[in-house]
Design a binder for these strands. Structure first.
Lengths: 110, 110
DNA sequence: TGGATTGCCTTGTCATCTTAGGTATCGTGC
DNA sequence: GCACGATACCTAAGATGACAAGGCAATCCA
């Protein structure tokens, strides 16, 4: 694809969603934009990736969705990080840090 | 799984294999051990992941395999990084760096 | 009125990792 | 002599998870 942006690595999406929601509840469409903004336009999550992921992590109890209205009165489903989700976010961030460290180690190895 | 080791992230395997081979040609079984060693025993690649991956990246021309013998005289297929593979390694490392940067940015965002 | 945007969702496809095998050779210990 | 572990190759089944591509509906605004 020779994408100038960093491609999403399989397995990081959950972490990004949880991270985005750690700034406050949001609906799906907004999550995509928040991730884009938080990453300085470098990551763009596709809807076809997001909604299944939201469903997945809601089943796991990391977020809880509730129908409501956005600021302009439109129907939207708001997702909120649960306590378990906060914990999971820490777990995934630590795991990510470990991987980054290991790859750096590999890089340095001779 | 609460694995103390860093889990392999889908998509990083190719880079690790190319990196391992950048230290010199090696057969499949040895690549697994080299990756383990280079990562301070923190990454372990499964055979069921490695061999398909080798096949895959050989098709792409990043490595070339040739049957030979190891130092003890046993038959083994040695993989060697091609010039295209060296280039690809740089590409993947840059892409990795970009992703690490972006995630760090996400982490810092408010 | 009609396209752009917001907002939800599903389906199909593809790539890739894990698990779990199978084959064969070789060295070592009993 | 033979069992066992290590070395070395490979494959198949299953699950996961991202992407592409679409559909639906409401709203906004030119």
């Amino acid at each position: 694809m020779t994408n100038p942006k960093a491609d999403l690595l399989q397995g990081t999406l959950d972490m990004l969603i949880l991270k985005a929601l750690s700034l406050g509840p949001l609906h799906g469409y907004g999550i995509i934009q928040r991730i884009r903004r938080m990453s300085d336009e470098m990551l763009s999550v596709e809807q076809g990736a997001l909604y299944p992921a939201l469903y997945r992590i809601e089943l796991k109890g990391w977020v809880s969705g509730k129908w409501g209205e956005n600021e302009t009165g439109r129907k939207a489903k708001f997702y909120k990080l649960t306590r378990a989700g906060q914990k999971q976010l820490r777990v995934e961030e630590e795991s990510w840090d470990r991987l980054v460290l290991v790859v750096a180690k590999m890089r340095a190895a001779t």
